[in-house]
């Protein structure tokens, strides 16, 4: 009769030690997913804002960027100085490997258009939007400079889109596909016509 409780107590003790040890070991380990790699901790990042003003100081283009798990949401808002006009003119969700940005010379001299830059694994892309948020021409909401250029000129590749050389003239610098510095081009908005320049606009 005396031996039985002792054995029970001993078994309970051993089981308790094993349980405590297991619990402690699980708590100390990082949580793993199916892949066996540590799962990233989900930290909610506040939306980031970047604003660029028009050269005459009348308008501001603001980019709001919100990073999610695997994507980034971008919203572009246009506002005037008096804050009377405030409108979202463009929104896009990209994978976290890609990014959108506002170039410094984004506004056309007449404040009618802006251009944006998209950086991705396949290179940079540039496109033009209307400041009013309306279509540029017909049903065209954005003019994809890079796509249109690549379709027309296989001998050159765009290295930079620097700004506006005139009211509706986007400045494009290129390299030759075969190597070496290429010419500069105007991209005429809204007609979508490219004009090869005799002078390079460095």
């Amino acid at each position: 009769m005396e031996k039985r409780p002792r054995i029970i107590i001993a078994i309970c003790l051993v089981l308790s030690i094993i349980s405590i040890g297991y619990i402690l070991s699980v708590k100390g380990k990082p949580q793993t997913g199916k892949t066996g790699y540590p799962l990233p901790l989900a930290i909610a990042k506040p939306p980031q804002e970047i604003s660029v003003g028009s050269p005459d100081g009348n308008w501001t283009l603001t980019m709001k960027e919100e990073k999610n798990k695997e994507t980034i949401s971008y919203r572009f808002l246009i506002s005037n100085n008096d804050d009377i006009f405030n409108k979202e003119i463009f929104a896009k969700i990209l994978s976290s490997t890609d990014a959108l940005s506002i170039p410094a010379n984004t506004f056309s001299p007449d404040d009618k258009y802006v251009f944006l830059k998209e950086t991705g694994l396949n290179g940079d892309a540039y496109f033009v939007l209307s400041v009013s948020g309306e279509s540029i021409s017909g049903n065209i909401q954005t003019l994809d400079i890079s796509g249109l250029f690549a379709a027309k000129y296989q001998d050159y590749k765009i290295t930079d889109v620097t700004g506006w050389g005139g009211v509706g003239l986007v400045v494009i610098n290129t390299d030759k596909a075969s190597g070496g510095v290429g010419p500069s081009f105007w991209f005429e908005v809204p007609s979508g016509v490219f004009v090869k320049l005799s002078n390079r606009l460095n």
Binding site: P55, G57, N105, P109, T162, G163, W164, G165, G166, V171
Partner: peptide, 25 residues
């Protein structure tokens, strides 16, 4: 100030120093 282009950071003038209108002001 220059209101006819917005390509600052790149030569665009006929000898003068062009600035954004807000900066020139």
């Amino acid at each position: 100030g220059a209101y006819w282009h917005n390509n600052f950071g790149h030569p665009m003038s006929h000898g003068c120093v062009n600035m954004r209108q807000v900066d020139a002001q």
